[in-house]
């Protein structure tokens, strides 16, 4: 049911772990199935210099988390924000239809991490 790419990312997830000195952290729970993802970003000159994730979830949740980190690594925050769940699913050669909801998680966690970084680094009013 899963593509080879999904299984590869499930078995060998890229960028797993925590960033102790993260500049932004996004944590998301999936209300549909309860999967949980935590995404850490390190930002330098408005670019994602490093990214790591931790995921509690099904194969699709783990694979989309992993693929998301690959897609945004080195991107500017604006570029990274434009990465959608559809981009992630496509990069994985597709997801089963009943698993599409699992791919929201990675996109939502990324947006939250960027937002977290921006709030923390907002110029004083």
């Amino acid at each position: 049911m899963y593509s080879e790419k999904v299984m590869d990312h499930f078995q060998h997830p890229r960028n797993v772990g925590q960033l102790p000195d993260a500049d932004g952290i996004g944590e998301m729970g999936n209300p549909v199935c309860g999967d949980i993802m935590k995404l850490y970003i390190k930002v330098r000159d408005d670019r994602i210099q490093d990214v790591k994730f931790q995921t509690f979830g099904c194969g699709a949740a783990i694979a989309t988390s992993s693929m998301m980190t690959e897609l945004v690594m080195g991107k500017t925050l604006d570029e990274a924000e434009r990465v959608t769940r559809k981009n992630v699913a496509e990069a994985l050669d597709g997801l089963p239809p009943n698993k599409m909801h699992c791919s929201n998680l990675a996109a939502d966690a990324l947006h939250k991490a960027i937002e977290d970084y921006r709030t923390k680094n907002a110029p004083p009013a």
Binding site: M1, V32, D35, C58, N98, H101
Partner: peptide
Amino acid sequence: DMEGIAVASGSACTSGSL
């Protein structure tokens, strides 16, 4: 499954049922 062992799950995300 990748180790050739078949079990089942009562998990939310199991294929076919949300």
